[in-house]
Amino acid sequence: MKYWILHRLGSSLILVLTLMSLVFFLVRLAPGDPLDQVASAEMSGADRELVRHRLGLDQPLWRQYGQWLSGVARWDWGKSLRQQREVADILGEAVPATLLLTVVAFVLHLALGLGAGVVMAVSREGFWGRAVKLTGLTLYSLPGFWFGLMLILVVSRWLGWLPAGGMSAPDAAFMSGPARFADLVRHLVLPVCVLALGSFMSTARYVQASLEEALGQDYVLTARARGLPFARVLWGHALRNALLPVATQIGLYLPFLLGGAVVVEVVFGWPGMGRVTVEAIRARDYPVIMATTTLAASLVVLGSLLADVLYQALDPRIDLRGRRRRSP
């Protein structure tokens, strides 16, 4: 087991390194001189060369590549071309904002997905099952950015209940602790709703399938035959077993939530990684683009590693080293 995790860790590391190389060379393949992003057209030839030298762009490509990699290992992502700041500082502000948004949204996503999944499994052809399925599928099909805009229009502009964007009120700095927290929560509600409502159906379908399978198992039949009420069998026996495969999938939702976060952050002006990336792309600020893309991809690799380990740890029947353990 220990050996297997080490092996898996190693291959994840190689995957991340390959991804980083891909990002680096893709960006360098871009047509045009990267210098044009910083140097103005009126600069003299000598000045241009000076800037080029300062940015290290006169070095051979493989050396720039090596420098980038070794920099990243020290959490030094270079300087932003457009903002006169270290990319690491930009990330330091953006990553926590994105994490806050995605973690809160994920909790709501799980709660909704679980509830909807159970309802759909129990009343498959019934009214509630159909109603939940229809609602979930409709929400799933809405374009996230449009859903966000409509919520802003109705909830913020027409009803005036919640702020329309940003992470805090302009006067948040002068607020007391609890008031500032309440302000943050008010800013979180709409973005979190867009992220969770638009995605919970994927978990719900998984829960439904898993629970339907569990309800058909012998132990459920046995428990029912012994006279246990359906509700107890459902909550006590079936759901517990059905949740196991769901729990192992948690890591795989990372790409989904990160992708959703890009959309939500742009619409709500949430100062996270997605918004930083989109702004950097508009400005062709390559060091920033490389940093956020690498980070996002690494998080996804980490997520699938987590999913594998959880899968292995939680279900004694599964042995990812290739053998299938004898069932007890």
Partner: peptide, 11 residues
Amino acid sequence: AFPRIFLILLL
């Protein structure tokens, strides 16, 4: 391993 939207944005 790329979140799809990041891959699209990068390209």
